[in-house]
């Protein structure tokens, strides 16, 4: 079961510059939202606020009827276990090989036996064609391989909500071809709420997909 995400009167300001304000958006359970805008328009900040990585400066982020700022820590931790984030900087753990990076949330939260986890990780690695570099450390991977690795890590826990920041950044043509059907699958999957921040909305153009443009004026 995916969960609904609601943003109520979200505002972000750095110094005297207002990045965005009066953001009132509801992303229904199983729905998808694309956040677009120019570089520096606050897409990543908004995405990370939605993902609960950054606390909202003002306003509320509500996951499944729980306000992230006021809900008890144990409730938020429970919700975090059901969601995943793909960071712009990939954020793979530098001392773990790619395979162990993808397996990390599964092993840490004991989501299956060792054989089950290894099988799940191998299948993700196979799908994203990362088998050749599965035991390499992140430092020896290309930008595209790191990006796909961090997407695989996010998908490993079968999240009910996934937030991806620039998921196609650094992907070559072939890797984009691998990503496209995966994206279609995620959007079509009603058991997963998808939020994507990108400055390349073309790849995500799809009929009926809800887009939030942060550029000239906030779309409410």
């Amino acid at each position: 079961m995916s969960f609904e995400v609601r943003l109520a009167d979200i505002r972000c300001q750095y110094g005297t510059q207002i990045l965005f304000e009066k953001i009132n958006v509801t992303i229904p359970a199983g729905g998808a939202k694309i956040i677009t805008g120019k570089s520096g328009s606050g897409k990543s900040t908004l995405l990370e606020t939605i993902a609960g990585v950054l606390p909202a400066q003002s306003g509320s982020v509500i996951w499944d009827d729980h306000d992230l700022a006021t809900a008890p820590r144990v409730v938020v931790a429970g919700l975090e276990l059901r969601s995943a984030v793909v960071f712009q900087q990939h954020a793979l753990i530098s001392y773990l090989p790619l395979f162990e990076n993808i397996a990390l949330p599964l092993r840490h939260h004991r989501r299956g036996t060792k054989a089950e986890i290894d099988e799940k990780v191998s299948s993700l690695i196979g799908r994203l064609q990362l088998h050749r570099v599965a035991w390499n450390l992140p430092e020896s991977l290309s930008e595209g391989q790191r990006r796909l690795g961090s997407i695989a890590r996010a998908l490993a826990i079968s999240p009910e909500m996934i937030c991806m920041d620039e998921p196609t950044y650094g992907l070559d043509d072939e890797q984009r071809k691998l990503f496209q059907p995966l994206f279609e699958e995620l959007v079509a999957d009603e058991s997963m709420t998808v939020v994507i921040a990108t400055d390349d909305p073309k790849i995500f153009s799809r009929e009926g997909l809800s887009i939030l443009n942060l550029n000239p004026k906030v779309e409410l």
Partner: peptide, 17 residues
Amino acid sequence: GNMKVCREIDALESMAI
């Protein structure tokens, strides 16, 4: 410090670790 700057700490927290 390097883990913090490379967002690895944020990644761990986002995985509820």
